[in-house]
Amino acid sequence: MTATRLTAATSIFTAVAASALLVGCSAEAEVRTSEAKMSKNKLADTVAEKLAETTGQPKPKVTCPDDLAGKVDTTTRCELTAGDGSTLGVTVKVTSVEGDQINFDIKADDTPTPATN
């Protein structure tokens, strides 16, 4: 029982630590299309990779509901799900587009949403 609580607490701590580290975090990805656009799966994978790189933690589960249009100031919301089922919202905002390359900032919410039982 104690190990389960410790695991849950560790997951929540990781999510909170991730949110603190992601403030002002930037990423870029090159997309090969006639109109700059990143698929929701590629976006989720890129956000997860950046999160893992920034925190030194394993790559988390991230989902994004929509493709990201390559237009400056476009935003979308993705969701990080921790091992205990708690979630953390992540805002992605396009900062620049250079041909097929979309550059964006990532900002995680300050507080995770606890898992529903």
Rank of each mutant, 00 (worst) to 15 (best):
G89Y: 09
G89P: 00
T74D: 15
T91I: 07
S86E: 07
L88I: 10
T87K: 15
K61H: 10
T87C: 11
V97K: 02
V90Y: 02
V72H: 08
V94Q: 06
K61M: 11
L80E: 07
K61V: 13
V94S: 08
D73Q: 15
V90K: 03
A82G: 03
L68S: 10
T81C: 01
G89I: 02
E79N: 11
C78A: 04
L88Y: 10
T75E: 15
D67L: 06
K71D: 13
A82M: 10
S86N: 02
V90R: 06
C64N: 09
G83E: 07
T75L: 10
T75P: 00
T76M: 03
S96E: 14
V97A: 09
E79F: 13
C78V: 02
V94T: 07
C78K: 04
E79W: 13
K61E: 14
P65V: 14
T81E: 11
V94H: 01
T75S: 15
C78M: 04
V62D: 02
L68K: 05
G85I: 01
K71G: 13
V97W: 04
P65N: 14
T76S: 12
T81M: 02
V72F: 07
K71M: 13
T81S: 06
G83R: 00
K93E: 12
L68M: 02
K93S: 08
T76G: 04
R77F: 12
T74Y: 13
C64I: 09
T76L: 13
V62R: 04
T63M: 05
S96Y: 05
D67Y: 08
D67G: 03
G83A: 11
D73T: 14
S96L: 09
V92P: 05
S96F: 04
G85S: 00
A69L: 12
D84M: 07
A69F: 04
D84Q: 09
L88M: 08
T63L: 09
V97M: 01
D73F: 04
K71E: 14
T95C: 02
T63A: 15
G85A: 05
R77M: 04
G85F: 00
D84N: 09
K61T: 13
V90E: 09
K71H: 12
D66F: 03
K71R: 15
T95S: 15
K71V: 14
L88E: 04
V72K: 15
S86D: 00
V92W: 08
T91Y: 01
G89D: 12
T75F: 11
A69C: 00
T75W: 08
T63E: 11
C78L: 04
G70P: 03
T91N: 13
L88P: 06
D66R: 12
T74L: 07
T91M: 09
A69P: 10
L88F: 06
K93C: 05
C64V: 05
V94G: 01
T75Y: 09
V72G: 05
L88W: 03
V72M: 01
V62N: 00
T75Q: 14
A69H: 10
V92A: 02
T75H: 13
A82D: 04
G70C: 04
T95W: 09
K61G: 12
S96H: 05
K71C: 10
E79Y: 12
T76W: 01
